[in-house]
């Protein structure tokens, strides 16, 4: 059995791919509706990076699984209970402040995760990670700049940014949960145990929130479930829209 055929590795790749597909989809909902033209274009760039990363990751998941599913089959023909993204990715896009704060939280996480995955013993995953690191660096730069701008902008933007931080905070814990899958891929040198990313994430995020004059919310119960397929009600609606054309014409090519 080749090392990459370990069952945990497929689950792990689905987590990586689904996070980025679902978040990229949410971000693409802004296309044509952004606050200013320049930002409309910037958000679309980030969405494209994320969907692009997801495509490569799901392709690798399908190949590793060897059950005849390619990236499109995985994206379009799995139900919400089979999705493995963290809940934070699937929440509706909200206002621009909500979108930016979520983007910032996820981008810092993604950069740390992909930096570690550049050393994956799976060469393909390491290659995807090397590409994703470059993209995530820019995503952090772009979203951090906006978090500071909104936090320290007007009274209204501060209130909206703080509301977004408060709302999203309880979904951040799930990003750093460890379980058998994380531990298995970490010990095999294929992946990184997400729990090791919590400390640097908090340091970076809290530094930016401080510069943005925003308050870190008190520790509260952290929502979880996405990694096991137990999602919010939002994901089902999102997928029913995303998958409608593909599922209405099974077997068709596009």
């Amino acid at each position: 059995m080749p090392i990459s055929a370990q069952p945990g590795f497929v689950s792990y790749l689905l987590r990586l791919g689904d996070d980025r597909l679902v978040l990229g989809h949410r971000l693409s909902e802004w296309c044509g509706h952004g606050p200013i033209l320049e930002e409309d274009i910037a958000l679309a760039n980030v969405a494209l990076d994320l969907v692009g990363e997801a495509t490569l990751l799901l392709k690798l998941a399908g190949e590793t699984e060897s059950a005849g599913r390619n990236e499109d089959a995985l994206a379009y023909f799995r139900d919400s209970t089979e999705y493995r993204n963290a809940l934070i990715a699937e929440l509706p896009k909200g206002d621009f402040g909500f979108t930016i704060v979520r983007q910032f939280f996820f981008s810092v996480f993604s950069l740390l995760q992909m930096q570690a995955l550049q050393r994956s013993s799976n060469a393909e995953l390491a290659g995807i990670a090397a590409k994703a690191v470059k993209e995530a660096k820019y995503h952090v730069r772009h979203s951090a700049q906006w978090v500071v701008t909104l936090g320290d902008g007007t009274e209204e933007s501060h209130a909206r940014a703080q509301a977004a931080v408060d709302e999203l905070w309880r979904y951040t814990g799930e990003l750093f949960l460890t379980d058998a899958v994380e531990q298995e891929v970490a010990s095999a040198g294929l992946g990184v145990d997400a729990s090791t990313l919590a400390e640097p994430w908090h340091a970076q995020v809290e530094e930016i929130l401080r510069r943005a004059t925003l308050t870190v919310p008190p520790v509260s119960y952290m929502q979880r479930g996405g990694r096991d397929g137990r999602h919010t009600e939002h994901l089902g609606h999102m997928l029913s829209e995303m998958q409608i054309v593909a599922r209405s014409h099974p077997g068709a090519t596009w």
């Binding site: 200013i36 929440l91 402040g97 007007t154 009274e155 209130a159 703080q162 977004a164």
Partner: peptide, 23 residues
């Protein structure tokens, strides 16, 4: 998710510049 801020202000407080498309 919230489309409204917790304490809405109209963005035209004394220190806010007018709306524009930026320089």
């Amino acid at each position: 998710m919230p489309d409204q801020p917790t304490s809405p202000t109209n963005g035209t407080d004394a220190t806010s510049p007018a709306d524009s498309q930026w320089p």
